[in-house]
Amino acid sequence: MNITTILFILLSVMAIGSAVMMISSKSPVHSVLWLVVVFFAISGHYILLNAQFLAIVNIIVYAGAIMVLFLFVVMLMNLNAETEPIKNYRLQLVGIVAGGLLLLVIISAIMKMDVEHLVQTKDGDAGLIKVLGMNLFKNYVLPFEISSVLFLSAMIGAVVIGKKDENVN
């Protein structure tokens, strides 16, 4: 066992453990905080793969911005264990079926993977900012630009929804 393996096991336990805690904790605020821990563990995995840029962007975007907004909303709604709506059994059943199907897809994808050449730890350079930038702006420039247009339209949509309707008053 070298240090990479030990760190991998530690981070995996941390990621899966806090993911389970996120689902099972009663208070939504606790769930959000556990999810933040999951993001940190995943960023740790990125660093093990020498993808420092991905790791830090994951923290800035997910832990630093999106989860703060989540926390914001959850705190404002003042959800807690007593006011949690009782979910009906049919909905729970649908959830189990949907989750099971997703699991099936993931398992079949993992079965087909080439496990031997799966990861490059330490000397892999796929996640470094220079390589990533070259790839995005040379080899994948069209999908990259299209996805940015998609983001722009989503932003405009959010602004339109958020804008006060002047005809109401």
Binding site: Q52, I59, I60, G64, M75, I129
Partner: peptide, 25 residues
Amino acid sequence: DVNIGILYVFGVVSLGVYGIMIGSW
């Protein structure tokens, strides 16, 4: 001397708000 230095600073700054939010809630 990581090669993402300035992004690291930015990341930690963006996490700074958790201390205040958690404490206030």
